[in-house]
Design a protein around this nucleic acid. Structure first.
Length: 373
RNA sequence: GGGUAGGUGGCCGAGUGGUUAAUGGCAGCAGACUGUAAAUCUGCCACGCAACGCGUUGCGGUGGUUCGAAUCCACCCCUGCCCA
């Protein structure tokens, strides 16, 4: 079953152009996957997400397990049908919640015990049941449960955590009963040696792809790029590489340059909800007073519904009066921006001009143009 | 005209002798957000300045009591409600 899932079709340096294919979707890579944690990309109709062009989105096992429950989703015909998203879905396992809800969980070799952030009730996540939950969802790509360690974790802690994460990954592989794809997750904290060990250990398993976890968790960007650069060379060339939770446009460019194929991040959707628009000239905080009388679109030349129809002045107004259309229109734009970024990245790789594109993009993105009134 | 309640920083509204340039909330200004406990969180918000400190003015007005008043007293001005 591995033959058609992923293929690298072109390269420019270490940057790769590829195709990721399952019966449900076909994605050109590098690809960005919007995040829909609770079976919805917040504020977006599935139709709008599809219209922008995204072939695959992310959802989350921990959150869907708590509400509405994997049994319910299974009975409702699976996650795709439940949320009316017919393209690809990658589900995270709850590994990130091992990190983000660290005060509400405890880890043992057997698995992770969570106290629900909703009602305090106790729940146990094991490699086996996390696969079972994701099989109930019917997600196209599943993640194993893993421990995402904080950036300041010691070498010895990460070393022992890594062994557990690896054993969990192989137990997930064993527990799998469907042809849904399962990735291995490379961890190793900020230690290059451990990253290498992690990748080399996991490549022994029959994983469909490799996630890179535990980055962008509070470390500096430079460190993240360094660690990433010490990781990707050890991941099999012919398997997709997914940098979990990243990222910002500059991070994505740096990661693509280091051979990453897949990304997801809440940044475009979350910042949209708080009034920050991503543009080629950097971020725009729409509530800033300079936009009060601006009849300009958020981003000139953007073909998204928001930019095609609304002025900065109007968008600012929506945010000032706290109307829900504001976050919705902002999310549409930010996702369209991310989609366009990825498309441009792919084109530049195809034309063997990735580095030129990257340099040009970053120069413009980081040197905020004077905001036009 | 009589009675009564009240006048606090852009607005609402705490505070009724001393950690008070004055709690809160709203509005305003700015910032953050990276496998989503986020339509959330943080900072600023009298005026002036050589400004992480100093100075000035300050709780309707004017006087007064007091070591010290937004807080107590006197008079005045204004507003709401009730009765004529």
């Amino acid at each position: 079953m591995e033959n058609n899932f992923f293929s690298v079709i072109d390269r420019d340096g270490d940057a790769r152009l590829g195709i990721l294919k399952t019966p449900r979707f076909c994605a050109d890579t590098p690809v960005f996957m919007p995040v829909g944690t609770q079976a919805t990309v917040k504020g977006m109709l599935p139709r709008d997400v599809a219209d922008i062009g995204f072939p695959i989105i992310l959802s989350n096992t921990y959150h869907l397990y708590l509400r509405p429950g994997h049994e319910l989703i299974r009975k409702m015909g699976g996650l795709h049908r439940f949320m009316d998203w017919r393209r690809g879905i990658l589900t995270d396992s709850g590994g990130f919640q091992v990190f983000s809800l660290k005060d509400l969980r405890s880890i043992s070799d057997e698995g992770v015990t969570f106290k629900s952030h909703i009602d305090g009730s106790s729940h146990f996540f094991s490699p086996e049941n996390v696969i079972m939950f994701q099989e109930s969802f019917g997600s196209d790509i599943m993640m194993p449960i893993d421990e995402c360690v904080p950036p300041d974790a010691s070498f010895s802690y990460v070393e022992s955590s890594l062994k557990r994460t690896h054993s969990w990954a192989f137990r997930c592989l064993k527990a799998k009963t469907t042809d849904q794809r399962l990735f291995g997750i490379v961890q190793g904290g900020m230690y290059g040696d451990l990253r290498k060990i992690s990748a080399e250990t996991l490549r022994e398993g029959n994983f469909s792809g490799f996630s890179i976890g535990g980055l962008s968790v509070g470390e500096s960007k430079e460190l993240m790029y360094d660690v990433l650069g010490l990781t990707t060379p050890h991941i099999p060339f012919d398997k997709p590489r997914y940098l979990m939770g990243v990222g910002a446009p500059d991070d994505i460019l740096e990661a693509v340059e280091r051979g990453v194929d897949m990304f997801d991040c809440v940044l475009p959707t979350r910042t949209a909800r708080t009034g920050t628009f991503l543009t080629a000239d950097g971020k725009i905080v729409i509530k800033n007073a300079v936009h009060k009388y601006s009849a300009e679109p958020v981003e000139a030349g953007c073909d998204c519904y928001t930019c095609a129809n609304f002025t900065r002045s109007y968008l600012r107004h929506l945010f000032m009066v706290d109307e829900m259309l504001g976050p919705q229109l902002a999310t549409i734009h930010n996702l369209a921006f991310m989609y366009r970024l990825m498309k441009n990245i792919r084109t530049s790789i195809e034309q063997k001009k990735f580095r030129v594109f990257k340099a040009g993009f970053l120069e413009r993105y980081n040197n905020k143009a004077v905001i036009k009134q």
